[in-house]
Amino acid sequence: MPAPSKPRSAFERYLPHRRWLEWGYWIGVVVISATANTLTVGMELRRAGIAHHPMEPAIWEWSSNLVFLALVPAVAWYSRRFPLVLEDWRRALVAHAAGSLAFCALHVLGMVALRWAVYASAGESYDFGPWGRQLLYEYLKDIRTYAGMVLLMEAYRFVIRRLQGEARLLDAPDDAPPEEPVERPERFLVRKLGREFLVAASDIEALQASGNYVNLRVRGREYPLRTTISAIEARLDPARFQRVHRSHIVNLDFVASIEPLDTGDARIHLHDGSTLPCSRRYRAALKDRLGAAS
């Protein structure tokens, strides 16, 4: 009789729909913004008695919003690269000031190029106006848009980490010696939805770098730890864990087999049926470690 399946958490139920909902949100924002702005700009032009082609407000607003949509992945990547953290707020502030300038430049160049193309296809020419004044005007709008995007993305990631469970290293107590070596932790503390529990390092099946986090995989679930893959590698037990890729570390106890690939790389099969990539740089060392263990 098969064992009853464990009920899925809210995060696990959400995962299959995650990308669709994330992109659906941004596409919905663009459609609503472009449509509403097209209507309001057209009304303002008619109210002011400014001659214009009926399609011009739509060209202006949709070109701006489509370029905005194209920049969403870049802002998501950049905000993961430079997260908003209090302990490094100066670096984050400088990085996002530069990011807002790049966002504005790409946004303006993209939308002007689209407008030029549309006007040219109709045998007309598009005049953006004095570039210096217009860039300043656009930047004052775009810096607010950029800041709103970054704050929204950070808030969303915060909620996701709380649903998923976020790991951290155990700290040494202030008034007593640590119960275990802090340099090479045997356990990790995971906080999930306001509750805390300990995860043994030996239970970690694999680790994967993900931006400014490293995901600890435990019994098929992942818990992000704010660190780098190199930093956590130096603190793991080298007798148990092996680097197999620039973004992956595996617990040798969970390796079932290694599948060589024609490229010289390999595919690692774990006991639960999942796989990890192994680059040719680490393949020989992994085979030696597994051969010595057997």
Rank of each mutant, 00 (worst) to 15 (best):
I232W: 02
I229C: 05
A239G: 15
S210Q: 13
A206L: 13
R235Q: 14
Q208K: 14
R235G: 00
L236H: 07
R235K: 13
A209G: 03
E233P: 02
G211T: 11
R221D: 13
R221Y: 02
V218D: 10
R235E: 12
Y223K: 06
A234C: 01
A231E: 15
V214W: 05
R219Y: 03
A231S: 14
R221T: 12
A231C: 04
A239S: 12
D237F: 08
R240I: 14
T227L: 04
I232T: 08
P238K: 11
V214E: 08
V218N: 07
T227Y: 01
G220W: 01
R221E: 15
A231R: 15
A206N: 09
V214Y: 03
D237Q: 10
D237T: 11
L216C: 08
E233T: 10
L216M: 14
P224N: 01
S230G: 08
V214A: 05
T228E: 05
T228G: 12
S230I: 07
N212Y: 07
G220R: 01
V214R: 05
A234H: 11
R217H: 15
N215S: 13
Y223T: 04
N215Y: 10
P224M: 05
P224S: 02
L236Y: 04
Y223P: 03
L207A: 13
N212H: 15
R221S: 14
R235W: 00
A209L: 09
P224E: 02
A231V: 10
N212W: 05
G220S: 02
N215D: 15
I229S: 06
R221F: 04
A234F: 03
P224D: 04
P224F: 00
R226E: 08
A231W: 02
I232V: 15
E233Q: 14
R221H: 12
R226T: 03
G220P: 02
Y213L: 09
L207C: 14
I232K: 02
I232Q: 02
T227N: 10
I229R: 06
L225H: 03
A234R: 13
L216E: 06
Y213A: 06
R226W: 01
V214L: 08
L225Q: 05
V214T: 12
R221N: 12
I229F: 06
T228I: 06
R226P: 00
N212S: 14
P224L: 04
T228H: 05
A209S: 14
S210I: 00
T228A: 03
N215M: 15
N215R: 13
G211H: 10
A209Y: 07
R240P: 00
I229T: 05
L236I: 08
P238N: 11
L216F: 08
T227S: 15
I229G: 03
R217E: 14
Y213E: 09
I232C: 05
I232A: 02
S230A: 14
R240A: 11
P238M: 11
R219W: 01
S210H: 12
I232H: 03
L207K: 09
R217K: 13
V218I: 11
P238C: 12
A234G: 07
G220Y: 01
P224Y: 00
N215V: 13
Q208W: 01
V214I: 08
S210F: 06
R226I: 01
A234E: 15
R240W: 03
R219S: 12
R217G: 02
A209P: 00
N212D: 14
G220F: 03
